[in-house]
Amino acid sequence: MTKVEELVKKQAEFHGYKRESLMPILQAVVRSERFLSEEAMVAIAKELDISTADVYGTASFYTFMDTKPRGKNIIRVCKTITCHMKGKDGVIEALEDTLKIKLGDTTPDGKFSLLQANCLGWCHKGPVMLINDEVYPELTPQSAVEIIQKYLKQK
């Protein structure tokens, strides 16, 4: 049994084998693997006794359930109205320069993915970004780069 299959098995045991468990299991796999591989989706389908197409169909509906490999740290910069008005473009440019990747890409070392997201719910404190589950409001291009540098030093 591979590492992913083991993870899926454990999660299914924990959450139960009902259809309602699908989301929490998918979320747990994404949390640990950063994305849903074909292998993971096949394993989930097997555990819950539903078709793999059904698992993929559900996963692909949700923005946070990536079906292609992502970095260890997923950066999501809010792009919706007020964050746009308050300068999210400058933040993204600064992050692209620092990480040397384009929006939507992952660094070659697999440490960061840089993405945009729809409204993150911090309109009064934009621009804002999420790194994994952490929130960083009231960004400037400079402060965004400093935050990334902290992450770089950590690991």
């Binding site: 468990s21 998918l26 994404v30």
Partner: peptide, 24 residues
């Protein structure tokens, strides 16, 4: 129950679909 980044899940019946492990 956690969502996974889908605005339409704020619609009450979409939310329940999502809670049931389906597309929202």
């Amino acid at each position: 129950k956690s969502g996974s980044g889908a605005y339409v899940c704020g619609e009450e019946t979409a939310l329940m679909e999502s809670m049931e492990g389906k597309r929202g």
